[in-house]
Amino acid sequence: MVTYILQRLGLALVTIWAISVVSFVIIQLPPGDFVDTYITNLAASGSAVRAEEAQALREQYGLDKPIWVQYWKWISRVATGDFGMSMEWGRPVIEVIGDRLWLTIVISFAAILITWGIALPIGIYSAVRQYSVADYIFTFVGFVGLAVPNFLLALIIMYFGFKLFDLNIGGLFSAEYQIAPWSAGKVWDMMKHLPLPAMILALAGTAQLIRIMRANLLDELRRPYVTTARARGLPEWRVILKYPVRAALNPFASTIGYLLPFVVSGSIVVSLVLSLPTVGPLLLRSLVAQDMFLAGTIVLLLGILTVIGTFLSDLILMWIDPRIRSGMHG
């Protein structure tokens, strides 16, 4: 069991390292360094930067050093919580990101809860009543959910909300709470706005999980232990819920490893369409403006949070699977 935890932890650390490299590459990718961008920006606003000043800036950020030294400097600063300055906003990156990161997590988490909340019962129903009319309907809706990219779904829902109900669906807060400090009222306001974006985000994942749950459960329903439970005199619903569903739950729970990055990805695009105050719109804007420290930090933090989420779910998975708990792998 300890080996298993260490294994997952090791993989999580390697993944975080890989993400940091990718983030650094993203920061480095645009032609020229950010001092160039800085100078261009200043020049555009009328003030010129002298060559010595530029040189001093470069040395300050270590831009004259080889690339791996730069990476090391950057990652060392990141480790202390210093993510650098946002060019565009002229403020520390972490300040610019502010609440947005947490709101991204809240939306993603809500989407995953909804995904499971819907996929689990429907998956069970579809497997137990295989080839019933409802099973066919769920399967079809599932395919459609899989086929509609979630930003498109957001667009369509937004349009019809506007057209049919004259609703402006975008945003996560009502106008009065937009810039208000956090309070119980603001949290409640957010809870009211949360379900729709979370549901849009959840649809594709739900469709996938229904199919996974249905297939797993169909597999399990054929196993002898189900018949054994029936032969003991258990009512049918208890047979199904206690045994095969329990067994099918494990591969189902392990899908969070793929679901989480998928939902976080989706939240970026959906946030843009529905103008949600997550890191999504900020990331896009920073990329367009080549505000690379901001962009790199967002990619880094999103990646790290996803990895942590996956790691935690691995631990939960281990905890619920007696075979892993007792040191067997299977």
């Binding site: 196993r223 002898p224 232990y225 018949t227 054994t228 439970a229 206690k242 045994y243 329990r246 067994a247 494990n250 699977d321 007696p322 075979r323």
Partner: peptide, 8 residues
């Protein structure tokens, strides 16, 4: 082997 639940 398979007539008993592995999860209980």
């Amino acid at each position: 082997m398979s007539s008993l639940s592995a999860y209980h």
